[in-house]
Design a protein around this nucleic acid. Structure first.
Ligand code: MN
Ligand code: MN
Ligand code: ZN
Ligand code: ZN
Lengths: 152, 152
DNA sequence: GGAATTTCTTGAATCGATCAAGTCTCCACG
DNA sequence: CGTGGAGACTTGATCGATTCAAGAAATTCC
């Protein structure tokens, strides 16, 4: 079924004017399968896929891809930077305070920027970063189990 | 004029059940005068105020004060953690992409949490963190000057 | 004022990320 | 095809922010 592939790494790289290399392709594929992963997580996934690649090479690829707008980099407080392929769509993130899992949250108000401060203090606001912190279902279940065990 | 003091470090510490020490008082006073400062900036301010205190001691004090809810700690992406005395009022921050300066932004919708995601994905949302990124007046002026010089 | 508790100092270590120099790969051109 | 040169990748060092650990000093409560 041609065209059913969600991601064409080669096309993405060519469109960005970047060389098509094994490492970059591997990084893009890994990100397509594991969005919001850290550099180390991606390195692990890439290695598991059979592509030999240094962690530093992963960092380099992610840096270049981010600089060229192919990737988006987010830095939730208290955890390593995460990367994703969704760029330029003004979506937001929900971060679990237990396991640092990150999931996408669409903007609830409309187009970008979906929110502006009441008083900008003379700043020219270019980006509205909205991060929700909470506990994901898995962590909530785990906490419930732990409480039961403690009470028993 | 008794009572005109904006901050009583000793009372704050006692209320939190913490020992009143020179270092903690110095940290609170410095924060009162320089909100949203980093640990190193606070250390510099404290030293300038004539109080001998190690950078590590500043980190320890900030950690304890944050754990006890006396301080709030924020971690803007790409810069060191900042601290402030405004706790529990659900206000937000405006960060300059040029100099990392941080200023307060009051919530524009109402009480906490002033915003909730359209789809919480099963998470129990506990905190809504909203960060605006932009360029502050000083940096904008500086950029304008630089451009003029470049054009001249 | 003195003992017990905690905080502070000194120094090392950690984590995530970046830098630097040399080697290897991609790809445009012959 | 075959090759040359820009630019990726590897290896190893380095960095900044923060934390950890053990002993010395300070604070609190009697
Ligand atoms: Mn996302
Ligand atoms: Mn603030
Ligand atoms: Zn979780
Ligand atoms: Zn600025």
């Amino acid at each position: 079924m041609p065209g059913s592939d969600v991601l064409d790494p080669t096309a993405l790289l060519r469109a960005a004017g970047l060389k098509v290399t094994r490492g970059r392709v591997a990084a893009l594929v890994a990100l397509g399968e594991h969005s919001h992963s850290s550099a180390e997580q991606l390195h692990t996934h890439i290695a598991a896929g059979g592509v030999p690649m240094t962690l530093q090479a992963v960092y380099l690829s992610l840096q270049v891809l981010t600089e060229h707008g192919v990737l988006r980099r987010i830095e939730p407080a208290g955890s390593a930077a995460r990367y994703e392929l969704r760029v330029g769509d003004n979506h937001h993130h929900l971060v679990c305070t237990g396991c640092s899992r990150v999931v996408d949250v669409d903007c609830m108000v409309g187009e970008a920027p979906c929110l502006l401060p009441a008083d900008a203090h003379g700043f020219s606001v270019q980006e509205t970063e909205l991060t929700f912190w909470g506990v994901c279902p898995d962590c909530a279940a785990q906490a419930a189990t732990t409480r039961e065990e403690g009470a028993a």
